[in-house]
Nucleic acid binder design. Structure first.
Length: 253
DNA sequence: TAAGCGTGGAT
DNA sequence: TATCCAAGCTT
């Protein structure tokens, strides 16, 4: 849930979700469309589908338990390098290297004196992070959560609170006078007028619907009908929408 | 490797 | 108001 989404926004929905589906088996028993429905407006609804698929995989391959190795975690749908490392470290206390957007920012600032990390994770940044993690198991687990929290709460992207930073006396970026970022620009996302916006509108309608919707009910989702058709096709291809006879659609059963 | 994928709060 | 950006993953 927290992938590309601030924890403060995730928390209330996470609590609701855990009450509804307390175990992998409980989630796996629900239709995938119900996972998408109760994902609400958290964003990136494919994550809901993959979380459901991960629950199915945990029931099928791991006796309904969360796998306790990084390789086992990494094999789950929707679990990439970051999430596998985070669960391995935070839930199981394993020694690994957690690299998320917060960790990347803290390390390049403190160690390299850069204002922000590169647009996407580089091999250099991964090496930097790996070389910084303590060798001991317990110490590494503390390190991973500490660096991430520092980035989330103090060494933030927009308004870093350097006056409250516990490593301010050792920060290369602060020592250099907090120079501005001069690397390649991050690609702007943009949203207005994109298929993502149209997909979001289509799914919002389907989440609220208690019965299948016909094609004409999506007319207002985009100015051109071709856009609606393309987005519906994409949603069906992604498994987020199930097509029925007579051009009717619903969340997947 | 780069592009595509949602949403909403903060600045 | 417009832009940035958030515990990334997949193809």
């Amino acid at each position: 849930m927290a992938q590309q989404t601030p924890l403060s926004r995730v928390e209330p929905l996470w609590r609701e979700w855990m009450e509804r589906w307390p175990t992998p088996a409980a989630l796996a028993a629900a239709p995938p469309g119900e996972a998408v429905r109760h994902w609400g407006r958290l964003g990136y609804p494919r994550r809901a589908l993959r979380l459901h698929a991960a629950a199915v995989a945990m029931v099928r391959d791991h006796g309904g338990e969360v796998p306790d190795t990084e390789a086992g975690l990494r094999a789950l749908p929707g679990v990439g390098a970051y999430t596998a490392a985070a669960v391995a470290a935070f839930a199981f206390g394993l020694r690994t290297t957690v690299v998320d957007t917060n960790v990347r920012r803290v390390l390049v600032r403190a160690l390299d004196g850069e204002a922000q990390a590169a647009p996407s994770l580089t091999a250099y940044e991964r090496d930097l992070a790996e070389s910084a993690v303590p060798s001991g198991r317990a110490a590494s687990a503390v390190w991973n959560v500490a660096v991430m929290e520092l980035g989330a709460l103090v060494c933030t992207a927009r308004m870093p609170r350097c006056e409250a930073c516990p490593i301010a006396d050792r920060c290369a970026w602060l020592a250099a006078g907090r120079p501005a970022y001069d690397g390649p620009p991050r690609r702007g996302q943009g949203y207005e007028g994109t298929d993502r916006q149209v997909r979001g509108r289509i799914l919002a309608l389907l989440r609220e619907a208690t019965k299948p919707l016909s094609r004409s009910e999506f007319d207002g989702c985009a100015p051109e009908s071709g856009t609606v058709d393309r987005c519906l096709d994409g949603l069906v291809a992604d498994g987020l929408v199930e097509p029925l006879a007579r051009s009717r659609f619903r969340l997947p059963a």
